[in-house]
Design a protein around this nucleic acid. Structure first.
Lengths: 95, 95
DNA sequence: AGAAAAAGTACGTCTATGACGTATAATCTA
DNA sequence: TAGATTATACGTCATAGACGTACTTTTTCT
């Protein structure tokens, strides 16, 4: 991956961040992106135990997320997106 | 990626978790894996601003990490590892 | 070279998250 | 159907992450 590509990607990340914070609007309505943790986990047929160790959190915390008592923030949300779209990237980088 | 492969990877993740928690030892000594945040960031020649938005944290938090006032935990550590080994996975999953 | 802007150091304070524990319910599976 | 595994639900506490402020260093531009 070259620098130009890298910076273009970074720029889009920055914009996504702005949208998230409400500084910028998407066409029409504001997007609230609360990840559906249980859905992502079940997509890969994993137990809470396994999924939590994949994310580097305790089972209790995962349960807090799935049950809506707590909300995953910043890095956890990013990680969940990766888990959703590229789970192997997590697995491989943890090896 | 098939299920077998996926589960093998998961197993190795689980073991890594055990090592981290001190339940299991590596050959001889225990591994303490504190990520060198500044080093990872500089590897890609990014400003704190950009790197922080990549990780989904505030610049202040990134500074806390780099200056050793706070330590990134769980999900953030996992994300840093991905940032170190597969930065494009983060960028692409955030698009 | 000198001013202005950007990037980074350093730290005080508050709040919500993450961890832990306990009790209970649902779901496999042998 | 009994036991084990998996998941729901929630009380409590410690600390990370966010925010603000002040100052220093580095980069950029005229």
């Amino acid at each position: 991956m070259n620098d130009k590509m890298f910076n273009e990607l970074l720029e889009s990340v920055k914009q996504a961040g702005d949208i998230r914070k409400g500084k910028r609007k998407t066409s029409g309505y504001t997007v609230i992106e609360e990840p559906d943790v249980a859905a992502i986990r079940e997509k890969y047929d994993m137990t809470q135990q396994k999924f939590s160790s994949l994310l580097g959190i305790s089972v209790g915390t995962l349960r807090n997320w799935e049950q809506g008592r707590r909300k995953p923030q910043g890095p956890a949300k990013v990680l969940l997106k990766i888990a959703e779209k590229r789970p192997e990237a997590i697995l491989e980088s943890l090896r």
